[in-house]
Structures are given as structure tokens and as C-alpha cells.
Design a protein around this nucleic acid. Structure first.
Lengths: 158, 158
DNA sequence: AACGATAATCTCGTTCAGCGAGAGAAAGGA
DNA sequence: TCCTTTCTCTCGCTGAACGAGATTATCGTT
């Protein structure tokens, strides 16, 4: 049982934040008749688009930890809803690219827009130096969690 | 489309953190033959226990946004796995209290323990003042997200 | 007391997301 | 050319979660 030092409250906040974001996604998904997975997929696809990465079913399945069958069903669903289009690669015709429709982009903004606006507004209460501290802190916590996950995956839980 | 000021990168970090935590839970759940929902439930129950709150099926269902049928199935599952016990309230015999077994507490620590240890270690790179800034920042973001979720639930997404 | 209204949980039948196994189709070496 | 690998999809199935409603207990009225 780890220490009960000053780090624990901070850790609980990280958890709480994570839960809060997850609940937001769930609520939004329900509101729009999407499954949580559908929204997660859409977010991944929008991120990929922003990063200039062309998403494929295999890549998407990896991101969401779905197997290929589940991924196909997911994409069928998104395609039927008009959020995504399958486009065959002309070079490697085994591949399929996933292209997000403008309607889905709008949907994405309707989810993140207000949340971003509110967050940015709340950040105004902090000095640039403080925000930089927050940025460094978050970066540290993200990489810690990622590292932890990487090691835990290999070792049998203690 | 919201501004692209200095707040956006920070916002993306919040999102990323949330995803990272979720993936950690998923990986741990898979490793132990639990469903993501089961682990979420266990975490809620452990939190309730720490807070001195006696959990009931109805309360748990609310936390996880499950309906009563789903909640019953979930508790059946957890009970079968030996993580939870149903205990009838002697005062109001309609109520059932959910008690977490020691084995489940251990399981919870085996998940959070290493993560907490690693996080606390990473926090050592920050000064107490910086950690306090992080604490205030997280608190602000949590309440912002919560407020956003509360308003969005009522209004039709723009 | 006896009654209806309300609350907490559970049962039943159903739907559909995601899984495992494997098929098909295209690419890339030997 | 053949064999292996890669990428996606099809099929059949399991079981998580849902909607509707039954069951049991409590509480406020009259």
C-alpha cells in the first residue's frame, strides 16, 4: 500500500479528471445516439486528420483495442451514420482509408468546442508561468502513466 | 471553432491523460478477466468505502449510468467472482448494501499501487509550489468539465 | 389498521457490440 | 511461379446492457 504523502490527493485529481472527461463523452454520445466506442473512434479519426495521418481500419482497431471483426462492425456503423467513408487505396488495394465527413467534423466541434471554450476561459485565471507548470506536470503524468501501462502489460500483475 | 491560443495544447494534454488512464484500466481489466465496467464498478466501490459511504445497487448504477437490470447483472458478476457481497439492510429491507471483499481490495491496490508509486516518484521533480499550482489547475479543469457536462445534458448540442 | 403511492431491487426477453476463427484478396519475396 | 505475409471482411456466437414489468418493503393518509 503506497505512501499517503501529498502526492495522493493530486493522483486522485488526475483520476477524477479522467472520469469526468469520460462521462462527458458518454453523455454526448448518448445524446447523439452514438455508442461510446463510436465517439472514441471519431475522436481518433479527427486527431489523425489533424496530424495529417490517413487512418485505416487496422490502425483504428489498434487505437481502440478492437479486433478486426469488431473494427469492421464499427466502421459499418459509422459509415451508415454518414460519419465516415471507406476509400480504397489505389497503390495497395488491400488497404482502405477512412475519411471523416464534414458532418462528423461539425459533430466533433459541437462536442469539444464548448468544452475547449470553457477550459480556455478557466485557464485565464492562471499566469503564463503557472500554465507552463501545468503543462510540464501533465506531460510528466502522461508519460508516467504510459510507461506504467507498457510495463504492466508484460508482467503478471503482482 | 474555438481559438487556437495557448490553451489548446493544454486541453489536448487533458484529453490525452484521460485516454491514458482509460487504456490503463482496460489493459488491467483484460489481464484479470474483468470487463471494463467491472473495474469501473470496483473503483467506485473502493472510493465509496474510503469515503465511508455504504454503496447500494441503485447508487452504483447511477455512478456508472447503468439501468437497474444492467446493474443487477453487473453485481451478479462481481459477486460470482468473489469481489462483492450483497448484504441486506436490516432497517430498510428493500435496500442491499454492497461490500467489497478483501480480495477485491487487494486487486484494487495491485492496479493503483504501481501507478501511484510511479506518479508520486515523478512528482518529486516538482517543487511544492509547483505541485500546488498543479493541484489548483486540476481542480479548475475538473469543475469546468463537470459544469460543462451539467449544462450540455440539458441543452440540445449546438 | 388498511390503503394506495413510492422506492429499491430483481426477472424476463431481447438487442446488438465485440470476439474467435477463418476466408478472400492483394502485395512482396525466394 | 509459389509461398508467406498483410489487410480487410464474413460468419456464428457470447454476453453486456436495455426496456418493461414483477416483487417486496416502506411510508404517509385517512
Amino acid at each position: 500500500m503506497p505512501d499517503a504523502g501529498p502526492g495522493l490527493p493530486l493522483f486522485h485529481q488526475l483520476r477524477e479528471l479522467s472520469v469526468e472527461f469520460e462521462l462527458s463523452r458518454g453523455a454526448f454520445a448518448r445524446l447523439h445516439g452514438l455508442h461510446p466506442t463510436d465517439l472514441r473512434a471519431l475522436i481518433q479519426l479527427l486527431d489523425a486528420g489533424r496530424a495529417g495521418h490517413r487512418a485505416t481500419p487496422g490502425w483504428l482497431g489498434d487505437q481502440l483495442t478492437l479486433n478486426s471483426a469488431g473494427t469492421t462492425t464499427l466502421i459499418d456503423r459509422l459509415e451508415r451514420l454518414g460519419h465516415v467513408q471507406r476509400v480504397r487505396d489505389t497503390r495497395d488495394r488491400r488497404k482502405v482509408f477512412l475519411e471523416v465527413t464534414p458532418a462528423a467534423v461539425d459533430l466533433g466541434w459541437s462536442f469539444f468546442g464548448p468544452l475547449i471554450d470553457a477550459s480556455v476561459a478557466a485557464m485565464a485565471a492562471f499566469t503564463p508561468a503557472e500554465l507552463d507548470t501545468a503543462r510540464r506536470f501533465l506531460a510528466a503524468m502522461i508519460s508516467t502513466a504510459a510507461a506504467q501501462r507498457a510495463t504492466a502489460a508484460g508482467s503478471p500483475a503482482r
